Simulated assay, not measured.
Amino acid sequence: MARHRSQRVGELIKQEVSDLLQKEIKDPRIGFVTVTDVEVSGDLRHAKVFVSILDGKKEETMEGLQATEGFVRREIGQRIRLRHTPEIIFRYDDSIEKGTRIFEILEKIDEDGEDE
């Protein structure tokens, strides 16, 4: 039961953080960022927000996101009614880069197979 609730809260946080990144946060260090997933602890006290960064300035963007953690937490607390607002922690998600790399390897293998 608690796991199902943490998943629902995670989805709500994902929507709200995405909205905040698009409309509210104006930090010039934060470029094109996509929220890929949110993991919420069972007691709803901590939320890891996984982001994908598409403009290549990974370190600078992560610094900007970490600087906004307090603002994001306050906004989440106002938008989602919870007894305790979870602590927001931004984490870099490299799954898109890994998927692209695997796709390139598979294409190369396919090209090598056609040459024979």
Score class of each variant (00 low, 15 high):
residue 76 I to S: 00
residue 77 G to K: 02
residue 79 R to A: 09
residue 11 E to K: 15
residue 74 R to M: 02
residue 37 D to I: 05
residue 47 A to F: 01
residue 20 L to A: 10
residue 78 Q to N: 08
residue 47 A to V: 00
residue 15 Q to S: 12
residue 35 V to H: 00
residue 11 E to F: 11
residue 22 Q to P: 14
residue 74 R to Y: 06
residue 22 Q to E: 15
residue 71 F to I: 07
residue 59 E to F: 07
residue 71 F to L: 11
residue 51 V to G: 04
residue 62 M to D: 03
residue 26 K to A: 09
residue 34 T to R: 04
residue 72 V to W: 02
residue 68 T to G: 00
residue 57 K to M: 06
residue 58 K to D: 10
residue 79 R to D: 05
residue 65 L to W: 02
residue 50 F to Y: 15
residue 28 P to G: 09
residue 22 Q to K: 15
residue 22 Q to M: 15
residue 56 G to R: 09
residue 9 V to L: 02
residue 27 D to W: 05
residue 31 G to T: 09
residue 80 I to A: 04
residue 72 V to L: 10
residue 12 L to H: 13
residue 48 K to P: 07
residue 67 A to C: 09
residue 10 G to H: 09
residue 13 I to V: 14
residue 23 K to N: 15
residue 56 G to H: 07
residue 37 D to L: 01
residue 29 R to T: 03
residue 61 T to L: 01
residue 23 K to Q: 13
residue 39 E to I: 02
residue 23 K to M: 14
residue 57 K to N: 14
residue 9 V to K: 07
residue 54 L to G: 04
residue 57 K to I: 11
residue 52 S to C: 04
residue 21 L to A: 08
residue 44 L to N: 08
residue 48 K to I: 13
residue 67 A to K: 14
residue 62 M to W: 02
residue 48 K to D: 10
residue 53 I to L: 11
residue 53 I to S: 10
residue 54 L to I: 11
residue 26 K to W: 05
residue 54 L to N: 04
residue 18 S to Q: 07
residue 12 L to K: 15
residue 80 I to R: 06
residue 44 L to Q: 07
residue 39 E to Y: 07
residue 30 I to F: 02
residue 17 V to W: 12
residue 52 S to V: 05
residue 82 L to K: 10
residue 49 V to W: 00
residue 75 E to P: 00
residue 58 K to V: 15
residue 83 R to T: 14
residue 54 L to R: 10
residue 29 R to V: 07
residue 60 E to D: 10
residue 48 K to N: 14
residue 30 I to H: 03
residue 31 G to Q: 06
residue 18 S to K: 02
residue 54 L to M: 12
residue 13 I to Y: 06
residue 41 S to V: 05
residue 82 L to T: 04
residue 16 E to R: 05
residue 86 P to G: 01
residue 75 E to V: 05
residue 81 R to V: 07
residue 68 T to R: 08
residue 56 G to K: 09
residue 62 M to I: 09
residue 25 I to M: 14
residue 83 R to F: 12
residue 80 I to K: 01
residue 17 V to R: 00
residue 77 G to L: 02
residue 42 G to K: 13
residue 63 E to S: 11
residue 32 F to W: 13
residue 24 E to Q: 11
residue 59 E to I: 12
residue 39 E to G: 03
residue 31 G to C: 01
residue 64 G to A: 04
residue 15 Q to G: 05
residue 52 S to Y: 08
residue 10 G to P: 11
residue 44 L to G: 09
residue 78 Q to R: 13
residue 34 T to V: 06
residue 47 A to Q: 05
residue 39 E to K: 12
residue 76 I to A: 00
residue 61 T to E: 02
residue 85 T to G: 03
residue 78 Q to G: 10
residue 14 K to I: 01
residue 25 I to L: 15
residue 15 Q to W: 06
residue 72 V to I: 07
residue 17 V to G: 00
residue 12 L to D: 10
residue 61 T to C: 04
residue 82 L to E: 10
residue 9 V to Q: 09
residue 40 V to M: 08
residue 38 V to A: 08
residue 45 R to F: 11
residue 23 K to W: 14
residue 81 R to P: 00
residue 82 L to Q: 03
residue 58 K to T: 15
residue 60 E to W: 03
residue 75 E to Q: 13
residue 82 L to G: 08
residue 31 G to V: 07
